[in-house]
């Protein structure tokens, strides 16, 4: 510890610069990881159709997609109706932060973009 006390002025400056850069790096990593927490992505047949930031919505609207109608609301998204026989997607209700809605017969997928705390995959 003794030698730290005897640092020259120029060395102190260097240390200050490094400390500042490192703090900036850490801050930017934290910022990057927190962006895009509530974005819903809609796919049809594996192709991306729309990407919607739910946190910025002010009013609701619907997206017709062949036999499906998707309802987008401030803070949530759901399948309003579908012409498929099982209606599983409609019964799944509203997505807010995580999860996905799948309409297998019509090959539609609505997925909340991965947030920092989501698992990498789900078995089952």
């Amino acid at each position: 510890m003794k030698h730290i006390k005897k640092l020259s002025a120029s060395n102190k400056r260097w240390i200050a610069v490094f400390a500042a850069v490192i703090v900036c790096c850490i801050l930017s990593i934290i910022l990057i990881k927190n962006i895009g927490g509530r974005t819903a992505v809609i796919y049809k047949d594996g192709r991306e159709i729309a990407r919607i930031d739910l946190s910025r919505l002010t009013e609701s609207y619907t997206i017709p997609l062949d036999g499906n109608v998707i309802l987008v609301e401030p803070g949530g998204i759901r399948m309003q109706s579908a012409d498929c026989p099982d209606q599983i997607c409609v019964h799944q209700g509203v997505l807010h932060d995580t999860g996905r809605i799948v309409c297998l017969p019509n090959r539609v997928l609505i997925e909340m973009q991965h947030t920092k705390d989501a698992p990498d995959a789900k078995a089952g």
Binding site: Q92, G99, P119, D120, A121, K122, A123, G124
Partner: peptide, 13 residues
């Protein structure tokens, strides 16, 4: 490690 969740068999969501 990868984090793989296991579906709830009573409430698969």
């Amino acid at each position: 490690d990868w984090r793989v969740s296991v579906a709830d068999p009573l409430h698969p969501d």
